[in-house]
Design a protein around this nucleic acid. Structure first.
Lengths: 272, 272
DNA sequence: CGTTAATTTGAAGACTCTCAACTGGTGTGG
DNA sequence: CCACACCAGTTGAGAGTCTTCAAATTAACG
């Protein structure tokens, strides 16, 4: 946490969201500012989605819209797919669009004055990224895909137009703000409070699980570095805590970095 | 932080915002759940304020409203004054109103599963408390006045009515949500990250200052317990850090618990 | 002026961080 | 196919920071 050289903020926040209108797909900002390792342009434009038939319609921002409302959308809403590690936008970039996450997982990062980073939120399918675009003119976080991500890009003009014409969008926007505030508060009370082991336990209880081959819910963890940046502890501490949980049998590794959790045991450790 | 017996949540959250329509004015929840010490009913109803001539109109929720909009407000907007230590509402209370803070300082508290508390936000004049009332049905924090507080109570019905009729309120609501998210993120990165001394320094840089007798800005601190609950450290650690700063001359006590701060020195300690 | 609450201080121990070394998997080039 | 470099994860040891528990000191209040 008090690691790493000054990096991040100042440099490297120029052309994102620039001339093209897709998410800016830069590489994961590597910690030492060293050479780029990951693939280059990772966004794949997939055309204009059918919002009305969207598979996560009821989760997404346009959940409440009706037939007539869709006619008000005159600007294109593009769909993109990006690889894990891609930067969707950088803090400070001009904010011209909201992104609806259709699948995958995204971290929102803020850089501290010493150059280290803190993850302030995770966004999951159905979440809307960059809400600040509706009231401000620049993004406040750096958004990085943690897995392969599918998302829709909604220009702010669309939001503003719809806002004027239909009240139905308002409720969705307010609910999304509300969710952000709630997650931020939870982050503070659950993930930034108490011993490192308790934080890790709460984190494991909170992350999304998927049904494994045998139906048992499993979760793929983040890198130890990301876990540390979420919990406000060092990478080593995060690693130690997870290694401890493995040894004590509270979590069991199925595939590499994919675990089955004993939730009851975790709840005890979390201090419930 | 891992102190104090289980208290808070379960008990004592019944009649607030109950039959009377003022803020529920209970006593500060004392740490040991012991006998009530502070004054009893501390709210003083001050009648219906003149929103259009409100002294902090441009700061407040109704900043953008126009003459015609005010005619849409058919429910009374009451003005209250409460003493330091009063509880404005409790987490879990039915949320029927927003509160606009006209003067004073309020803490928003969440209780942890072990009964200890964490302060997740401070609210200052112009801020709106209980935004969640517009989208949910219960308050998510316990709001406690840290000083004598003057506030207006706006029933949610007023908000909903205005929302339907005028788009001007929307912008204000969104901006307030936005501010809440931003403050939450700042709380996490600035006040819950780094060493205890750095946190205290950032806290001192952040708290509101007033011009003292000689024009030098001074700040009245909170109790050491509250400072600890804000920064995620124990009361003792908070006390030690502040005592250190006093001894090293970075802050100078003018009146009891009121200080002049050497901001440059604080910035160094904060790690800027 | 006596009592109670809040703050300050001490000392010991627990917990994290730091720095460094080691491990195992991956990818590359010979 | 092997040797090598590289990276994320793991582990160790020592230093340093916080917490804990207790006691002393200072303000607050009837």
């Amino acid at each position: 946490m008090r690691r790493g050289p000054a990096q991040g903020r100042g440099a490297d926040r120029s052309n994102a969201e620039g001339e093209d209108n897709g998410p800016s797909c830069k590489q994961k900002p590597s910690r030492e500012g060293d050479v780029v390792k990951r693939s280059r342009i990772e966004a794949a434009w997939r055309g204009q989605p059918e919002c009305q038939g969207c598979s996560i319609r009821d989760l997404a921002l346009f959940a409440d819209l009706q037939q007539a409302d869709f006619n008000l959308i005159h600007l294109p809403i593009d769909e993109f797919e990006v690889e894990a590690g891609s930067v969707l936008y950088n803090g400070g970039d001009e904010a011209r669009a909201l992104l609806t996450l259709r699948s995958g997982l995204v971290k929102l990062v803020q850089y501290l004055s010493d150059g280290s980073q803190r993850i302030v939120r995770l966004q999951r399918p159905g979440d809307t990224l960059g809400l600040e675009a509706t009231v401000g003119d620049q993004y406040e976080h750096t958004a990085v895909a943690l897995r392969r991500v599918l998302l829709c890009r909604i220009p702010v003009e669309v939001i503003h137009r719809l806002s004027q014409e239909t009240p139905r969008l308002h409720r969705q926007l307010m609910m999304r703000w509300h969710n952000n505030v709630r997650q931020a508060d939870t982050w503070l009370t659950a993930l930034s409070t108490g011993s490192a082991k308790a934080r890790v336990a709460r984190f494991l209880l909170d992350i999304p699980k998927e049904a494994g081959a045998d139906g048992v819910p499993v979760c793929e963890l983040l890198s130890r570095e990301d876990i540390g940046a979420m919990l406000g502890v060092t990478t080593e501490t995060a690693s130690r805590m997870i290694a401890d949980l493995k040894r004590s049998g509270v979590i069991t590794e199925r595939k590499l970095n994919t675990f089955v959790c004993n939730e009851d045991a975790l709840r005890v450790l979390a201090g419930e």
